[in-house]
Design a protein around this nucleic acid. Structure first.
Lengths: 151, 151
DNA sequence: GTAATTTCTAAACCTAACTTTAGGTCAAGG
DNA sequence: CCTTGACCTAAAGTTAGGTTTAGAAATTAC
């Protein structure tokens, strides 16, 4: 095996802890773009290790794969990303995280005065305030709370 | 219509903003237990409005339906829950929320020093610390990060 | 009393993020 | 050379949390 043949999907899986099937799925979603060797097998660059790590961390933070892809697409195309590139990505990312935390905290602070009181079933309750609704929607349910189609 | 016939599923839907189908689904998941009238239609108590509100709020906080059900099961069985009952539920709930917020905050604080540095791809990175892994798993993926079957 | 709403059930469909399966190919070791 | 393990693709299955559909029965409204 030559020096710069790249990593096999199995090697990447072992190093990241991801399942091989998950890595293939991420490729299908456009999160990584391996090349193929003569036999048609995927070969990855070492910088893909970092891409996948970023994906895993971002998922812990509750971001969806399309959102993560959007962040990754901001990395330079032609060359291997530098630390500075990653730091740039990290910044916008951190801002979105701050929002999430703030929303959760605000909701929590409302909770004490709300669940014990009589307002819980009212549409006027602070917890139903439209500005609070962006929180933690996650995957699955489509028409939750303020998120219905309407028109 | 008599005075205490209970609420129809449509009335409950209008008052909570939930879809009728969602309310039926919640019944199937054991979150509410309506009785049936002579014609076989569901009838709800007014306290079910509060139960459903609790469900909606808990979902915003990122709890799953089984988790929410577990909380609701702690309400008294024979009688209509009082404010004190709800306040009790709220307490354990708040503790779990505090954990979530703390985890997210800790992760965020690690992010700055981590994404820009060389550790991102290492299993020793603070973001991969097992104590941090409980955060934000959400629905869907089963074997994410520390969550694989192993044995 | 009849038409228009609601409601009923059961089953199929939906998205996200993967895994599993089936059937075949590639690569490395002895 | 041949076997074993890693890899390939395409398609179907899985979970959570619902929605949609279809056909029938109950209520309500006029």
């Amino acid at each position: 095996m030559a020096l710069n043949d790249g990593l096999s999907i199995g090697a990447l899986a072992t190093r990241t802890g991801l399942a091989v099937s998950a890595i293939r799925y991420y490729e299908a979603q456009g999160l990584i773009k391996p090349w193929r060797n003569a036999g048609g097998q995927r070969r990855f660059e070492r910088s893909d290790l970092r891409r996948l790590s970023f994906v895993m961390i971002a998922q812990q933070f509750g971001f969806t794969l399309p959102e993560i892809r959007a962040e990754l697409d901001r990395l330079p195309g032609g060359r291997t990303p530098t630390k500075a590139d990653w730091a740039r990505i990290s910044t916008g990312f951190r801002a979105r995280l701050d929002e999430k935390i703030e929303t959760l905290t605000r909701l929590r602070d409302n909770l004490d005065g709300c669940i014990g009181c009589g307002c819980l079933s009212l549409p006027t309750c602070a917890l139903y305030n439209p500005t609070d609704r962006a929180a933690e929607k996650g995957a699955g349910p489509r028409y939750l709370m303020g998120d219905r189609p309407e028109t």
